Simulated scan of single mutants.
Amino acid sequence: MNPTNIIQILREETRPHHIQIEDNKYAKAIMDSSLSIEEYREYLERFYGFIKPMEQHMTHHEEWSRYDFDISARSKIKDLELDLVALGLTQKQIHDLSECPRIPNLVTFPAILGYLYVIEGSTLGGQLIMKQLKQTLNIQADVNGHYFNSYGSQEVKTKWNEFREFMLSVPLSEGEQHIVIEAAKETFIMLYQWME
């Protein structure tokens, strides 16, 4: 495996999983304009329950400072909390939300990169989802649509390119590349199962 191709390899290896996650019941309802505001809140609660334990696991790795990469700026929990409060939840209710019992193993840094490939990549699709939600549920990006508008429409491609370049700059052995790929697949699969 050529390390400069890790993004391309990830795209190819995870394509079936990517297609599957876009076919979850909430995403389908968004695209066919049948999602209710209650289901939208439930969708965000599901993301919160999956992402919160993941972010808690990954933020303390020393590699972030070694590579001078601001991982705190990539947090999605803040956006989800803003949306959930706007949708009527109290801080206590948010704190008490169920967390996904099965999450990918993020012990190693390559595994974290695999997870982040999925989550950071989803911000690109979030733009399309946000457009649809605005039309059907009148969701506003700066009120109750922060999560699907992560980084804002002007910055999302820039942020993705920054992450892409970061991943390409991290020296990975063939074994570590395998860990990245398997962690990305595992993230897609577990997130889909949690959504369903």
Rank of each mutant, 00 (worst) to 15 (best):
N138R: 14
I139N: 06
D70F: 00
C100Q: 05
E162V: 06
D68E: 13
E62D: 14
C100P: 02
E45I: 11
R66E: 15
L113Y: 02
K92E: 15
D23P: 01
I112C: 11
Q91I: 13
M1A: 08
M31Q: 11
R164A: 11
T14H: 10
E81D: 10
M54V: 10
T90F: 03
Y192W: 09
S33W: 03
T187N: 02
L82Q: 15
T158I: 13
I71F: 07
L35I: 15
K131Y: 09
L82Y: 14
E45S: 14
I189V: 15
L124P: 04
T136L: 05
M58Q: 01
Y151V: 04
S75H: 13
A183F: 05
N149W: 10
L97I: 08
F50C: 03
L97W: 05
P3Q: 15
S34G: 06
V107N: 12
E162N: 09
F109P: 03
M167R: 01
S65E: 15
F109M: 01
E176H: 10
L124M: 12
L80W: 06
P53M: 14
E81S: 09
M190T: 09
D32Y: 04
M130Q: 12
G49Y: 07
E81V: 12
S150L: 10
G175L: 14
I129Y: 00
K76G: 02
Q91H: 13
E12Q: 13
E165D: 14
R66D: 15
V85Q: 13
E174H: 05
E176S: 08
H95A: 14
R11M: 10
K92P: 01
V85D: 03
F188L: 06
W160S: 01
G121W: 08
L97T: 08
G145D: 03
H17Q: 13
L97R: 10
I94H: 09
W160K: 04
